[in-house]
Each structure stands twice: as C-alpha cells, then as structure tokens.
Design a protein around this nucleic acid. Sequence first.
DNA 1: CCATCTAATCGTCAAATTACGATGATTCAG
DNA 2: CTGAATCATCGTAATTTGACGATTAGATGG
Lengths: 116, 116
Amino acid sequence: MIQRAPAVTSCCPPPRDQADLRPVEGDEAEVELASLAKALSHPARVRIVRILLRKDACVCGDLVDELPLAQSTVSQHLKVLKGAGLIRGEVDGPRVCYCIEPHALRRLRALVGALS
Amino acid sequence: MIQRAPAVTSCCPPPRDQADLRPVEGDEAEVELASLAKALSHPARVRIVRILLRKDACVCGDLVDELPLAQSTVSQHLKVLKGAGLIRGEVDGPRVCYCIEPHALRRLRALVGALS
DNA sequence: CCATCTAATCGTCAAATTACGATGATTCAG
DNA sequence: CTGAATCATCGTAATTTGACGATTAGATGG
C-alpha cells in the first residue's frame, strides 16, 4: 500500500465554455475525428478518460494504481491523450495532475454526432 | 473514366430499430468504445463512413474511385469497418454493396455521449 | 467455355503501436 | 546537501497497422 498526500481539489479548473465554430464535415473534420478516435482506440486510454471524469478533480500517479500497467506505459498513454488534446496535465510539486479537457470531449461528441 | 451499372437503390434496407440495452459504462463498454474508436481512427475509414452516409444507399467499388488508395487498401479498410460492425456488405452480382449499420453508429454515439 | 469485371486475399515491406525496465529530471523533506 | 518520491523519456522487443502489387475467387456476358 502506497501512501500519498491527499488529492488537491481541482488543480485544473475547467476553462471557460466556448462554442466551437469549426465545421463538423469536410476533410479537416474527418482528420480531426480520426485523430480523436485514435486517442480513444485503446481500452486503457478510454479507462483513463473515464477515471478522470469520475474523479472530476485530477489525479496523477493514482492512475498507475488503477491500471494493470507499468508506470512508463501509463505515462505513454497519457502523452497520447494529451497529444490529442483530450486531457491536460499540470505540474503540482513533484506530481502531475491530469484532467479532462471538456471542450475536446464536446468536440468529439459533435463530430460523432455529425455521423448521422 | 470507368462506366458502371447504375447503383441499386437500397440494397441494404435499414434493419428494424431496436433499443440497445447494453450498459454504457464498465469494462465491456470501455473495450467496445475502444474498438469502435479504433475503426474510426484512420481518416480513410472516417471518409468511407461519411460517403456511405451521404449516398444513403450503398456503393461498392465506387469507394475506390473516391479515395486516393489502391483497391486492395480500400478493401482492407472496409474489412476493418465491417469487423467493428459499423458497415455491412451485401453481394450483388459481381459487386459488393456496402452500407452503414445504423445501430452501430447509435451505439457509438451512446458510448461517446456517456463520456460526460 | 472463355474473357472480363469486381472484390477479397496473399505476400511483403516500412512504419507505428504497445509494452517493459532502466535512466533522467525535478521537487520536497529532512 | 542528500535522499526519496514522482513522473517523463529512452532504448528495446514484439506485435500491429497501412500501403501496395499480384493473385485468387465468383459472377456475368458473349
């Protein structure tokens, strides 16, 4: 059992809501959807997103405890999610605090929703 | 310019609407979302889905004409989409007629929508 | 039957993905 | 300053992906 300092509440305040005016169709939208889908194309990454959503606040290495993967592997998955813009990481002392990027999820919903 | 016989209208009649009772959370849902996302994790496959949606009816080798890819590559992408359950292919004489599997798209929307 | 057309499959290659342990960088406690 | 803790990065190996040309399998038309 590893002890850790209590989680900081909301080290990643949700950014201001803002409408996304980019189109949901066309070549760019297709590449964008493919990119977001690729980030979610691995069960571990879907799980990370779910954990971050559930905990609402941001966790850091707790993710490693929740996943049956090595720390370096989790770090790689986090990098992929961050690269796609789905999460954000904020340095908080020796830890890094990850949280969902809400507008990226909204964008994903919009793009998937446009597949009608 | 390649001439082809006129497209058959609706060789893939949409199946009966039916509510999907499977949960949108939990391990299975995560694997399912990852699987669907993986199918859409390539721009060519997103494009194929969009084309099939736009044409509403099902096209076959016309997809090859619309994509800057070799026939065998398109066939592979179609196989991936079919494997994920997103499209269906029906043999129509010497051709194969592909169309969207609407309930799979609904399922995808539900799973993505559950990422709240 | 035979030639043709369509689409799937095979074989191949380069590149990307996924996983891990080891190593580095950074921060904090003492 | 030192050591411990946390996390990123590196190096590596196994697997998968994506692309293509060539070939195979079926169906149609003559």
